[in-house]
Write a protein that binds this DNA or RNA. Sequence first.
DNA 1: GCGAAGTAGCGAACGAATTCGCTACGTCAA
DNA 2: TTGACGTAGCGAATTCGTTCGCTACTTCGC
Lengths: 137, 137
Amino acid sequence: MARSASSQPTEVELQILRILWQSGGATAREVHNALAAAEAKETNYSTTVKMLAVMLEKGLVKRDESASPQIFSAATSQKATQRRMLGDLIDKVYDGSALSLVLQALSSRKATAGELTEVRRMLDELEKSRLPRPDHE
Amino acid sequence: MARSASSQPTEVELQILRILWQSGGATAREVHNALAAAEAKETNYSTTVKMLAVMLEKGLVKRDESASPQIFSAATSQKATQRRMLGDLIDKVYDGSALSLVLQALSSRKATAGELTEVRRMLDELEKSRLPRPDHE
DNA sequence: GCGAAGTAGCGAACGAATTCGCTACGTCAA
DNA sequence: TTGACGTAGCGAATTCGTTCGCTACTTCGC
């Protein structure tokens, strides 16, 4: 499978991206530690560095080489990635129906009253101004 | 291999599952044809059979061996699989927040008025009877 | 019964993702 | 300067998903 285009970040890549999104940027060591902390990952430091290198090649992360320990940061925003993966899921398992995904998300995970209100507000907005809401991220 | 637990169906497995969900059950040949029809897949028939065998091992599909050409069917319902993958996505890319997923799904994909009404109805139900809505599938 | 056409199954090949070992380089304190 | 310690990078090994070739078994018409 040629991966550069049209395909999602892999499992581990996603974990690393999450770390970078949250920290805004980190050294290889920091990423490695966060990775180890997040789960019983117990991988070699070299592995993390390699992953970062691979992701750099794929264009998933950026790197500031001027810094003493190099600083890595995500190349794509979390929102853009979310949108991409969400669309993918909808196509692949919901037969393209965003509606059924939303309904299922609402029904299967118990939402708080505040959250429901939030959704309602979003609905109001959508219904009021039915504009081709730009995909600004 | 033995990945029975904790991991999602792979790309091709999902395609096959979708075919089985829609048809309710099919022979290897039918699955193969549907696969070929769905996209420019152009794979060998043996490949499809092998995939089915692997999925059988993983417990993703069931098989009626008594039928003359064996009949394969999905072992898990589409809803259950959707729920599982949705939860996975929420954890992996939405930091566990179903709310932000819902908001993004609503805002990025233009929903029809009817769909919005549908969502609203669901909200009403949820707010009215805030029961620990059982995970019936 | 016999051959044709399709079904079932096995093991190996291939590629991509993940892992690690080993080497080289940089920094910093004694 | 030199040794300790951490960072950077390369190539190879491993694992897993996917693909196929080859062989055996069924079914059906002749």
